[in-house]
Design a protein around this nucleic acid. Structure first.
Lengths: 214, 214
DNA sequence: ATACAAAGTAAGTGTTTACTCACTTCGACA
DNA sequence: TGTCGAAGTGAGTAAACACTTACTTTGTAT
């Protein structure tokens, strides 16, 4: 349980109240919605307050700055997004005897469901990750750390089985990361789809598995 | 010469002076630089004017609005970016007998060189394309139209040669588009590289070609 | 019931912003 | 050389913004 420490560090840096008030929950909900509609930079705290049925002062009482409000959305989401990959998909996959392609189908399916049930916050996260240099430099190392330790093992597992070619692990990791991210981002951010078809998932898994075959 | 009409329509909608003044050129240069550094939303016209050594009024005399200044950067760039793909790479490739993988190497090399020599404006374009819903809805149809007519032919060519699998052309087009875009964006925007190695290009071409093989 | 801290409010504040306008300078051509 | 339109200026404006502050309400433990 010594993984994700970079992310946990970040999470600790934003004080999280144990029992968020109804108003706090409304603020977070409204912020996600309005940030995703207009982008962080074009969303005003006044509009978020109005939408949440709350005074603007309340937002700043709880979150201090607009920047910190953004982090209060993104970081808990990231904490959910990545550990779940590991616990729900990776171990089950690498212990059993499924193929690399089936593993990818499983992975894509699983994370699509996760994104679908909260698409707006995924959109906010991706847009700001690309837009704000400073946020990118904060979050990318965390994400890379998680993927390197967890998905790295999976790649090596399938390399030993002869299903994945013999390039260095970090090269393959980058390929897998780039192509799966591209899949999620193009569907949920660029084309703004609410649901991804099983067919799209299978095709993409095939594409990636073939690309990485020996 | 009836292609790219959607893009040409857009280009016509922003009045372009035939002979841009030295000051106009300085404004465009400065806007590219400052937009790429801080993002469109966080860049002020005052700062652009200061950097260009020009009065703020001059910017608005020529471009009317900040939004239109942004379009005056992006649209000419797009006009250069896509037709060049066609004329420089596609025809030469599909007439000769090179493999699909070599075609991809050629394509990636060619476009990397183009992006490298003007990285900032590529970054601005991508960031704003993802960030601004309205711009996305304006530009994506143009881009799709160009790719569908030109790259579509190439895919069918390599399908007939048996190097690309038999899925519908639009499915393959989307795959090719997604994976090449991901390559450019991850290198030049996400990781902010100034140069892409030949090795990276060859690996990616291999990856994509294998993924699309029958 | 009282005391007290945390939650919430409403009316600010100073700053930054895109954009305007009345004006001057420049350059080309008759 | 004088004229006229385009290029350029810079002080100004109103709106929008993140954030503050002095205050009130609420919930709870004694």
């Amino acid at each position: 349980m010594k993984n994700y420490n970079l992310l946990k560090e970040l999470a600790a840096s934003i004080k999280k109240s144990d029992k968020p008030t109804t108003k706090q929950k409304k603020i977070i909900e409204s912020a996600i919605l309005i940030f995703s509609e207009k982008g962080y930079a074009n969303a005003s705290t006044a509009e978020i307050a109005r939408h949440a049925g709350v005074s603007e002062g309340t937002i700043f009482k709880h979150y201090g700055t607009k920047e910190n409000l953004l982090l209060s959305l993104i970081i808990p989401y990231l904490e959910d997004f990545f550990p779940s990959i590991v616990e729900e998909v990776v171990k089950e996959a690498s212990n059993s005897m499924i193929t690399f392609e089936d593993f990818l189908v499983h992975l894509l399916q699983n994370r699509c469901l996760f994104i679908e049930e909260n698409k707006e916050i995924f959109q906010v996260m991706i847009k700001e990750l690309i837009y704000k240099e400073e946020l990118k430099e904060k979050l990318l190392p965390c994400i890379y750390q998680i993927l390197a330790t967890q998905i790295g093992q999976v790649i090596e597992h399938f390399q030993q089985r002869g299903e994945v070619k013999d390039s260095p692990t970090d090269v393959l990791l980058k390929m897998l990361f780039t192509s799966t991210s591209a899949f999620f981002i193009s569907h949920f951010v660029l084309f703004n789809k609410t649901k991804v078809s099983q067919e799209d998932i299978v095709q993409t898994a095939q594409f990636i598995a073939n690309g990485m075959r020996p």
